[in-house]
Design a protein around this nucleic acid. Structure first.
Lengths: 277, 277
DNA sequence: CCAAAAGTGTTCAATCTACACCCATGG
DNA sequence: CCATGGGTGTAGATTGAACACTTTTGG
């Protein structure tokens, strides 16, 4: 039985969309950006922002486009959660959604309803309204990824401006994992990190002792990322710039995390002393 | 500017495929099932088994179908790696591939070329031939997931028959992570696991001391999985049975792993003493 | 008796956890 | 001067890594 010669695949194609779980930190709580749908199906219900993938657009590119349309931001942390494809998750037609999560800083975003949304709002992930489609499931999957990743990498810094205090960083951890951590232990751990350093500056404010400002210093670790490009030997040379930058960044973070894990305390101390020269 | 009323999304749809990274253990090495393509594009090159998703078929269902077609097996461990969607990863047309990895026992599979494959073969993941599409990248992503998951969950057991010796289990770890581990430390660790227990039976063979046989005992930990279903409160009630079973199983394993992590040594000892009654 | 794999304990270093008080500032 | 958040050290438990020899079997 000869195989059909159809390179032009003739079965009906499903639609492919991207959905975005956009996380931010507000009021010391992890919040998710939701839109109130202006159109059927699920009109009037809350949902994740998202949209269909254009026929010549990469998945990450589509996610970045949606993020930009929704928040006006680009150059943010963006990572794929996975594909969600139950046959009837969308009542219109078969839609397979590739979900991403992003991290943005709430104060940089001016929320504004778009053409397909009545309202846009941040909602704490612990207190979500009824959601359209399988979006609750997607948000939960996204948060699991986020929590896990936060312990292995530096993405916690994505929630903060470039200069931050240790207390602010601690708040990020507490808010994301929904649990409090010991201040002294946290600071000890933070000091052991090779990729954040005090700037020498202070943040004054409130009626209390001023706090030292820190800054991420990727520079000192730059030689490492090459190791992470090993996975990139693959075909697909024509990937979009943005996708490459994003992939590079992730590889970098992973390599950094791996490196960090594999260092002993004494090596870290050595590294720190080198960095601070 | 009113939004277009098009519920019938009119842009061209991409094709959606599933690709499978089927892992097995053979000759003490982690191997991947590859097929030699009988059709263009990439005719004559090695590639992952896979195929297009049918219009009313869930993603996991499609992956299971492909696994069954390729190996004759069902009821295997199957987990999504993610979506791969560079616009030109397939020269024919836009194809978005959702990749899964599966774990099978090599001796249960009778390799047999199908209609679209000239040959089928196991290939060690460290020594892959040139691969079609972005399949090398997919395999690497799959292995990373596998290695990480093996440390957090019980999937190592998926490579083994229901009764196994500790040395066999150790071989799984060594083969998958491509690195040797200390026998005594490994056995200490294995003993601390609450989900495997000696059966009292022995495996005799070879001219050496017989080895104690172990078996996974999920039973003792059954109350836990309910906690993991919390994520399932979502919509999408009509999911296929197989997908549900699979999701349940993953939730179970994750919960088990989380539980295991959070136990102290003394609690584990207590648990073991209870289990062995 | 020999080859081959099964089985077993201890020590040391690193890491994690718990825990309570003094410090600098603004009002 | 006082309220507020910033900042610090230590001891005990747990974990992870390194390391060598005895036991049981089949041939």
């Amino acid at each position: 039985m000869p195989a059909p010669p159809s390179h032009q695949y003739k079965h009906p194609h499903p639609a492919v969309a991207v959905d975005l779980v956009i996380f931010t930190l507000q009021d010391d709580a992890l919040q998710v950006l939701l839109i109130e749908r202006g159109l059927e199906p699920f009109q009037g219900q809350w949902a994740l922002p998202g949209g269909f993938v254009r026929i010549n657009e990469g998945l990450e590119a589509a996610a970045e486009r949606e993020l930009r349309e929704e928040t006006g931001l680009s150059q943010n942390y963006l990572e794929q959660i996975g594909a969600f494809g139950h046959p009837d998750r969308d009542p219109r037609e078969r839609v397979i959604s590739v979900a991403f999560y992003a991290i943005v800083s709430a104060d940089k975003v001016a929320l504004q309803a778009g053409s397909d949304a009545r309202r846009v709002a941040w909602r704490p992930w612990r207190d979500l309204p009824a959601l359209a489609f399988d979006h609750r499931e997607i948000i939960h999957a996204g948060r699991s990824r986020l929590v896990e990743k936060m312990h292995r990498t530096t993405i916690a810094l994505e929630f903060l401006p470039s200069e931050f205090t240790l207390t602010e960083l601690q708040r990020v951890f507490e808010s994301v994992q929904g649990d409090s951590v010991d201040k002294r232990n946290f600071r000890k751990w933070a000091e052991s990190l090779s990729f954040i350093r005090p700037t020498g500056k202070m943040r004054r404010g409130g009626q209390h002792r001023p706090a030292a400002l820190y800054r991420a210093n990727a520079k000192a670790l730059l030689p490492i990322p090459n190791a992470a490009t090993e996975t990139k030997t693959a075909a697909v040379e024509s990937a979009r710039k943005a996708e490459q930058a994003s992939a590079y960044r992730k590889g970098y973070e992973d390599a950094l995390a791996a490196m960090h894990r594999s260092f002993t305390e004494s090596e870290k101390a050595l590294l720190r002393s080198i960095n601070s020269r």
